[in-house]
Amino acid sequence: MKVLYFAWLRERIGESAEEISAEGLETVADLVAHLRARGPRYEAAFEAPEAVRVAVDQKVRDWDAPLKGAGEVAFFPPMTGG
């Protein structure tokens, strides 16, 4: 599936998008644990999970949301438009 990062998550990870295999990942929380294990840049991006929001296929979801069938998962800080 496609994984996207915005704002300071993008800056900390150093990527705006990447392909991640969904194999063995049931929920968003599983994906986050998988990403954090990839190295210090990811660890830094997800060090305060309560400051990170997630969208699955462009809908805001909780961390226990299932990934089954998801094509796109995005991580970002709370929105600050307007």
Partner: peptide, 12 residues
């Protein structure tokens, strides 16, 4: 305005 500020994915 209120919904846009908290529910539309913009970051400053």
């Amino acid at each position: 305005m209120d919904y846009l500020k908290t529910r539309a994915p913009f970051w400053k």
